[in-house]
């Protein structure tokens, strides 16, 4: 469960987020919509621990994580540009988190193979990011995030680079991933159809405030 309590973020005297409070139950697929520049990405970065809020607290499963480093939060993050590591092959991208945790090579390989199979990218394991299409990159970024076995997955417009034909497939993939991994997902999008197809909880942010909330 994600609980945000009176979160605020100000920079150079400008208020980006103001008194943001929300509770997202565990295993929920929440979608967050709002106009460009309203603070959606900032909110995700505060949740990840990449930014410290000016005020307010972040709780995950009842634990206050506001002062914890990103690596201690158990959150998977897929940014808008997907941010694949340049120069690392798909196998290394997915195996990145397991390797950091010191897992034995056989276990890393097994986790990589399992996720690659699940995401249909087993044939791409030896490719570099430059040799992948937009849809393939998106799958690799998701697999990389899930390899760390997070409790919570934050997606920042992950489907924005995909064309219409691939989007429906990607939506189905995200639904399957959320259910199979029992994840709580917070998905930022500009697309109403994407939000309608995926979200069980709908949030809207306007000018740094969470204004409307509806449950599917």
């Amino acid at each position: 469960m994600i609980q945000l309590e009176q979160l605020a973020w100000k920079v150079s005297g400008r208020t980006i987020l103001e008194s943001v409070s929300v509770a997202i139950p565990a295993n929920t697929y929440a979608v967050l919509m709002g106009p460009t520049g309203c603070g959606k990405t900032t909110l995700l970065e505060i949740l990840c621990g990449l930014r410290q809020p000016t005020a307010g607290r972040v709780r995950l499963d009842g634990v206050d994580v506001t002062d914890l480093e990103p690596r201690e939060r158990g959150i998977g993050y897929v940014p808008q540009d997907l941010a694949l590591f340049p120069g690392l092959r798909v196998r290394e991208q997915i195996g990145f988190a397991p390797k950091l945790r010191g897992l034995p090579p056989a276990e890393i390989e097994s986790r990589v193979e399992h996720l690659a199979g699940q995401f249909g990218i087993a044939h791409l394991l030896n490719r570099l990011p430059d040799m992948l299409s937009g849809g393939e990159k998106q799958r690799v970024a998701l697999a990389r995030a899930l390899a760390a076995q997070p409790r919570l997955l934050l997606l920042d417009e992950p489907l924005s680079a995909l064309d219409e034909s691939m989007r429906a497939e990607a939506v189905a993939l995200l639904q399957r991933v959320q259910q199979e991994h029992a994840l709580t997902v917070l998905h930022v999008t500009h697309s109403s159809s994407e939000a309608a197809a995926l979200g069980t909880l709908h949030l809207r942010m306007v000018a740094g405030r969470l204004e409307a909330e509806s449950r599917a």
């Binding site: 970065e45 990840c48 621990g49 990449l50 480093e69 990103p70 690596r71 939060r73 959150i75 998977g76 993050y77 897929v78 940014p79 540009d81 941010a83 694949l84 590591f85 340049p86 990145f96 988190a97 950091l100 945790r101 990389r144 995030a145 390899a147 760390a148």
Partner: peptide, 11 residues
């Protein structure tokens, strides 16, 4: 951004 993602992955 890739460094940010690496931080969330455990770095």
């Amino acid at each position: 951004r890739p460094e940010d993602v690496a931080l969330t992955l455990g770095c």
